[in-house]
Write a protein that binds this DNA or RNA. Structure first.
Lengths: 139, 139
DNA sequence: GTGCCGCTTGACACCGGTGTCAAGGTCAAG
DNA sequence: CTTGACCTTGACACCGGTGTCAAGCGGCAC
């Protein structure tokens, strides 16, 4: 029972399986997002559940969450009982949504400023060309 | 004429005048965005035009442009003849606008994923509460 | 002479997930 | 035995504008 072959993957296999570099898997473990058993070698062993867990981590990363938020959020994301964790972790979600809104507003502002700037430049270039044409004509 | 007091500010004065740290001013100079004369001391001397130049740099930075783009863009931003520089530098503007659009789309995607995730969690939490209520009722 | 403020250059830290390399251990195949 | 694939930990690089500190010089005021 102790060496049940439930955890049959080493890090390279899991990496290929989920399409994530071994480097990242070690990083996730270092950040407390992913756990592994160890062989007598010291080699990491993963079970099938780890693959799903990595999938959830990737999803949350893709949403722009940081590893700290994800660590807080993961116990809720999986099927555990975790009623209280869930309630708490929505804080991270709301924080992230607010931050995303702020960033989008920031980008929109930049875009507007950039557009205005480009228009000014465009106008000045047209003016320059007109002046050049006049200079040519007078020559 | 050589020591005309056209450049009368040292770095600290200019910094206070434009509201930018001296550190940043030196950085702009290092990146080729801002120029200065030097006293016999080695102290930097700035003229009034430098203040405007710093203002333009700050504007462009606020638009999200990097120092490399700004260096390319500045000769056009000021009143020089620069017809050809202007034509060239619009490349940086368009690049930046395209990048901003891409980033905004990225953020929007994240936001949507996050919203969906939050809804799933919300739903699960409601389910958990329902289960808890039933458990209480049966007890 | 002493103090203090301002200036100089140079360097490290930050943020955060990932690439990449080094130096070394494990183990199966030949 | 050697070779080679795979694993381990640890460390540096990246990006980019800014904060901050160190060590040292300039110059004014006392």
């Amino acid at each position: 029972m102790e060496d049940r072959n439930g955890d049959r993957m080493r890090i390279g296999e899991l990496a290929r399986h989920v399409g994530v570099s071994a480097r990242s898997l070690r990083y996730y473990e270092q950040r407390g997002l992913l756990h592994s058993r160890r062989d007598a070698n010291g080699y990491r062993r993963y079970d099938a559940e780890s693959a799903e867990r990595v999938g959830r981590i990737r999803e949350l990363l893709a949403m722009g969450l940081g590893t700290d938020d994800i660590r807080e959020l993961l116990p809720c994301a999986q099927g555990g009982p975790g009623l209280i964790p869930c309630t708490l972790s929505t804080g991270a979600l709301e924080r992230q949504m607010a931050q995303l809104d702020a960033e989008m507003a920031e980008l929109a502002g930049r875009r507007a400023a950039l557009t205005a700037y480009a228009q000014v430049m465009q106008r000045r270039r047209a003016q320059d060309e007109a002046l050049a044409t006049m200079a040519l004509r007078s020559a």
